[in-house]
């Protein structure tokens, strides 16, 4: 640890300048916009913008859908990644092919996969054919609220990889004898996962959870790929709302919406952080 204070400065400076210029200063500077009406006189209107945005049906729709997507995708990615990592951990150090193939999609551009997605989920496509074969009615995946399914699956496909990498790294620290002991006691795969692995990797599990959540808030790409810039109501995300406001050059609305969303995000992560602290205390 270096104590010389000034010597840290050259290392910090490029990053600090960038962070302040592009993020910190405009973040606080932009608050001014959210309190004015954007007219010629630019009158100060207190919380009118906040009230207007909060009551705007499109903002609410976007917020609701974004929340819906993250509430579905986060647990889905988390659970799937945990299970796959458990399986991979069982056969380590072999299984490199399986490991690579499940991690690979994180590094693939999902935009290039879109075309296959459109084929797979077409009304006459392979997935509907499979559904008919097992005796279920076809679903029109690319219209209306059913469109959420391909959007979510594309997101899960893409984001599983990083979560698996982090889980795998954490599972290295669980000593092998613990599993053997659990097996002797007659614990199956799921019991081992729940009672042996999970308690030992709580911090990493939280990290994965939070990273998944951050990523799933950003869901928009997938929607844009599948249904274009003006999507159906059921997949209209907050990003769509923001983009539309940008096109109108409505900075008052955009900044206000951003601050409302930031407040919601911090609230959620505050709650998660609090839960984590409580849980760790109980386990420790």
């Amino acid at each position: 640890m270096f104590d010389r204070k000034r010597s840290a400065l050259p290392f910090l400076l490029p990053g600090l300048i960038g962070l302040f210029v592009f993020y910190v200063i405009p973040f606080f500077g932009g608050m001014y916009y959210s309190f004015t009406d954007g007219s010629y006189q630019n009158a100060f209107v207190w919380f009118d913008n906040y009230r207007a945005v909060w009551q705007n049906p499109m903002f609410r729709l976007g917020l609701k859908n974004t929340m819906f997507f993250s509430a579905v995708c986060t647990p889905l990615v988390w659970v799937l990644a945990f299970l796959v990592a458990m399986l991979l951990n069982r056969i380590k150090p072999r299984g490199a092919f399986f490991r690579n193939s499940v991690i690979l999609p994180y590094f693939m551009p999902s935009c290039a996969i879109l075309l296959i997605w459109l084929v797979l989920f077409d009304y006459g496509g392979p997935i509907n054919r499979f559904l008919t074969d097992i005796g279920v009615d076809r679903v029109s995946w690319l219209d209306g609220s059913a469109m959420r399914v391909p959007v979510i699956l594309l997101f899960v496909w893409k984001n599983l990889g990083l979560a698996i990498v982090i889980f795998l790294a954490a599972m290295q620290s669980v000593p092998e004898p613990y599993y053997e002991y659990a097996r002797l006691e007659g614990a199956g795969f799921f019991r081992q996962a729940w009672y042996v692995t999970l308690p030992m990797i709580v911090p990493s599990a939280f990290l994965v959870f939070i990273l998944c959540w951050i990523n799933s808030f950003k869901i928009f790409k997938e929607v844009y790929f599948i249904s274009g810039a003006y999507p159906d109501q059921s997949v209209y995300t907050l990003q769509n709302y923001m983009n539309n406001m940008f096109e109108d050059l409505n900075y008052q609305k955009v900044t206000t919406a951003a601050y409302i969303f930031a407040a919601i995000v911090f609230l959620i992560f505050g709650v998660i952080y609090f839960i984590q602290k409580r849980l760790q205390k109980r386990l420790g």
């Binding site: 405009p26 500077g29 932009g30 951050i214 808030f217 950003k218 928009f220 951003a258």
Partner: peptide, 19 residues
């Protein structure tokens, strides 16, 4: 930096655009 990391793109793009 952690706080910034938590913010989704919808939020950080606004300061970016202003600058």
């Amino acid at each position: 930096i952690i706080m910034l990391m938590l913010l989704p793109f919808q939020v950080t793009m606004v300061p970016n655009v202003l600058t």
